[in-house]
């Protein structure tokens, strides 16, 4: 997965050090991809930072859920757990029957380090691989997004409708707002979702 991010980051002109340190410090799959894509399209630093804030705001909820569930923890461990909370670690831990902080840190830190390792491998091998292969790696994060979203679409028609509305909204708003349309359509979409998605699904499914 980290390889796909590295592909975009390198394309955007980021150095290997910048590419890897972003994976280590920011650690936000989609947020980093967006940041790198925005660097590529010449967005201002402020626009990139604000977009990341909105796109990564979901970690606030995920971090809250994870930290509510963990047992035998303390503040330093909670802070570490907070930093390594992403969609994957949150989803895996939510489904796990074990609620020990050590189990969570085991899952989440492994994911974090392999994300960084992926970026490291990416910056090294992308130079050596043919363009066909590096171009094909660009799909990997989108494939993951689609893979995460598809079960929810399959399971719940209201979510499917909301995804469709938000996608169309983002295409339309993109014509007027450019890079800002992602933030606006995410928030407006969630606002629309308040009315078209039943409470039960979200409270049961959680994330």
């Amino acid at each position: 997965m980290g390889i796909g991010y590295a592909a975009i980051a390198i394309k955007a002109g980021m150095t290997p050090l910048e590419t890897i340190s972003m994976s280590f410090l920011v650690y936000a799959g989609a947020g980093q991809i967006i940041a790198a894509s925005m660097v590529l399209s010449g967005a201002t630093a402020m626009a990139i930072i604000l977009t990341n804030f909105v796109v990564n705001l979901r970690y606030f909820v995920m971090s809250t859920c994870v930290l509510n569930k963990v047992e035998d923890s303390n503040l330093p461990l909670n802070i570490l757990a907070a930093h390594v909370t992403v969609d994957e670690s949150f989803a895996m831990f939510s489904l796990s029957e074990d609620s020990s902080i050590w189990i969570y840190l085991g899952i989440a830190i492994t994911a974090w380090l392999s994300w960084c390792l992926g970026a490291g491998i990416g910056v090294v091998i992308l130079d050596l691989l043919p363009v066909i292969v590096t171009n094909s790696f660009n799909i990997s994060l989108y494939a993951l997004f689609v893979a995460i979203l598809t079960p929810a679409i399959k399971e719940n028609r209201q979510i499917a409708l909301l995804v469709l509305i938000t996608a169309v909204l983002n295409i339309v708003l993109g014509q007027f707002l450019g890079n800002w349309s992602l933030i606006v359509s995410t928030l407006v979409g969630a606002g629309i979702g308040m009315y078209i998605v039943d409470d039960e699904y979200l409270l049961a499914g959680d994330g």
Partner: peptide, 11 residues
């Protein structure tokens, strides 16, 4: 809770 779905759709 809805933001992940809409964010992924927009992404």
């Amino acid at each position: 809770n809805l933001i992940p779905y809409t964010a992924l759709a927009a992404l």
